[in-house]
Design a protein around this nucleic acid. Structure first.
Lengths: 132, 132
DNA sequence: ACATGTGTACTATGTCACACCATACACATG
DNA sequence: CATGTGTATGGTGTGACATAGTACACATGT
């Protein structure tokens, strides 16, 4: 069985949404290094998407270093996703700046954002359901 | 003179980048409620973009409630951007979740992200240059 | 040896966002 | 009346996205 679910939203590329769901599963430990990743055809059947679109999902995760491919066998979760200093600063600048601007536009307080950050962080620490 | 600058990045829509730069200027107080917003043709000339693209910029800011239009006169910065509860939860869930997933992928600590959040927050509080 | 399942590679079609060009109109101000 | 504003309308080109279909090299099962 495929260890993650997706509820498709309009306006966002399908392959991106599936890749993000998979990334969440990996990051949160539901898929661990060495675990087999669902095949292109399995993803295609499960999410009712074209095999080419499913292939784009694994391709995206491959580019990010989250998966490794065993030719003829399939893809497995990579041992240790590498990260460069450039990637870190890119994330910490562009993405957080966007978040701050949006939060200030909505007149949120820093405490509100910080609390939400803590909540989501611990939510992805262990595979337990968060309270609403 | 136009009170904000843009360094265009490939892969991101032009109108979105200009709108984000303007939003930053408004949120950080460099453009205050009642101030006149650059005209479509001024934006077009300044950033070397098509008038239609420039018009899409003001249209996007208009939809977000950051601008108001005086017919025949131009657009001015709106008095008080409204924010619905739906907008807040959308931001605090989808956008922060994305940030957390990316941060965990890059093996960053919560402290790192939290520190970057504080830094960007105060950076947009007053129009002073942040130290690098 | 053979069938099966895997990743991967092509070609092709259709839709849509994006950015451009150009023109035109209604409005308010000088 | 001319000028500058926002707004609307056509058209063109490029690229991403998702689809369909076909094909190949590889490894593993029997």
């Amino acid at each position: 069985m495929i260890p993650f679910r997706v509820v498709f939203q309009p306006g966002v590329p399908l392959y991106e949404q599936v890749a993000f769901a998979a990334k969440k599963a990996i990051v949160s430990g539901q898929l661990r290094p060495g675990d087999p990743f669902p095949s292109v055809r399995a993803l295609s059947a499960e999410f009712k998407i074209n095999p080419n679109t499913a292939h784009k999902v694994t391709g995206a995760l491959l580019d990010e270093g989250l998966l490794e491919v065993r030719p003829g066998l399939g893809a497995v979760v990579a041992d240790r996703p590498v990260s460069t200093a450039a990637e870190r600063t890119r994330l910490l600048n562009r993405e957080i700046e966007q978040l701050v601007v949006e939060a200030k536009r909505l007149r949120l307080s820093l405490d509100d954002v910080s609390a939400a950050l803590d909540r989501h962080w611990s939510k992805l620490d262990s595979p337990q359901e968060a309270k609403r």
